[in-house]
């Protein structure tokens, strides 16, 4: 698409003279119509074939044998158990990581503690570690050959291959998501508003509830959405520590693997479709939140500029 540029005179509302008729040009800082068309076409084809098709195929395979078979597969008690376990694990891991994210962001940005770069790096570390390695570390702690293995056995406590281990591994892999959204956001916001609240005699909890939280709510929600998606979908780490005990420690992603390996494709994709729907909801929420989040951020930057000038 080439841009139709009106000559300067026309832009200023001056009626065009005889020589200044409207003409179509390719601007010097834009591409030709053909180039644009090829670039957009390639990018869209790549996105839809490479990313869109896998999403589509999940639903297609799930519904291949009809809606009846789909809902029968979804009513399977083992699948429902896996779903409940997934919700339980996310229900524990996400709130804990929200608490961590808030505490870490408060200490680092409002408390301006020394060594905060190290804290940020540590909080980001789980993202750089393979999920399988994450699982391995918990087995090295709680497994039979692990550090606490003999002690746990002596006290008749089992952690490896239990729901507890699944929760711990999930907390590990989802630990960074809330913190890494909140830390830069709260850093930008500074401490002036909170300090003003202190001078007005507000307590710590009041400051957090009435001053900080309204400022960070979109960023916080954004982090929660991402954290939750990962918590419900985590596979590698959970696979290692759960022992994949069918009907006991199998979360939804692990149950998909079991069904798939048994060639029960309708059930595997029916279970997958639940997580795919979660992904679609996550994407929509992320998209909407980004808008609010960015709008809030832009407002903040504008306010700061106004204050400075």
């Amino acid at each position: 698409m080439s841009t139709t540029i009106a000559p300067p005179a026309a832009r200023h509302g001056i009626p065009p003279g005889p020589r200044a008729k409207r003409h179509t040009v390719t601007t010097a800082t834009g591409e030709s119509a053909t180039a644009r068309w090829i670039l957009i076409g390639t990018a869209l084809a790549y996105l839809f074939l490479f990313l869109g098709l896998p999403l589509f195929v999940v639903f297609e395979e799930a519904l291949k044998k009809g809606v009846g078979a789909y809902f029968t597969a979804l009513r399977d008690p083992e699948l429902l158990h896996a779903l409940r376990l997934t919700l339980l694990v996310a229900g524990i891991a996400v709130p804990l990581n929200v608490m961590f994210g808030l505490a870490a962001a408060w200490a680092i940005t409002k408390g301006r503690v020394r060594g905060h770069a190290l804290l940020v790096a540590l909080a980001d570390l789980p993202l750089a570690v393979s999920p399988v390695i994450a699982g391995l570390t918990f087995m090295l702690l709680f497994g039979m050959q692990g550090w606490f293995g003999p002690w746990l056995k002596a006290h008749d406590i089992q952690i490896a291959f239990t729901v507890t281990a699944v929760v711990l591994a999930t907390i590990f892999v989802t630990l960074p998501f809330v913190a890494r959204e909140l830390i830069p956001l709260m850093e930008e916001q500074g401490v002036t508003e909170e300090e003003a609240a202190v001078t007005l005699g507000a307590s710590g909890w009041q400051i957090f509830r009435r001053v900080t939280l309204p400022n960070i709510r979109w960023g916080l929600l954004y982090g929660v959405v991402l954290c939750n998606a990962r918590a419900m979908g985590e596979f590698g780490a959970v696979s290692v520590v759960s022992g994949r005990i069918r009907g006991q420690t199998t979360t939804l992603p692990l149950h998909i693997e079991i069904l798939y390996n048994e060639y029960d494709f309708t059930a595997a994709f029916a279970a997958s479709s639940l997580l795919a729907m979660l992904a679609v909801v996550t994407l929509a929420a992320k998209h909407l939140l980004e808008r609010s989040h960015h709008a809030a951020r832009a407002r903040l930057i504008q306010e700061q500029q106004e204050r400075q000038s």
């Binding site: 998606a229 596979f235 998909i256 693997e257 795919a276 992320k286």
Partner: peptide, 9 residues
């Protein structure tokens, strides 16, 4: 999507 879609799926 690759961020949001569980890896097993």
């Amino acid at each position: 999507l690759p961020f949001a879609l569980p890896t097993a799926v």
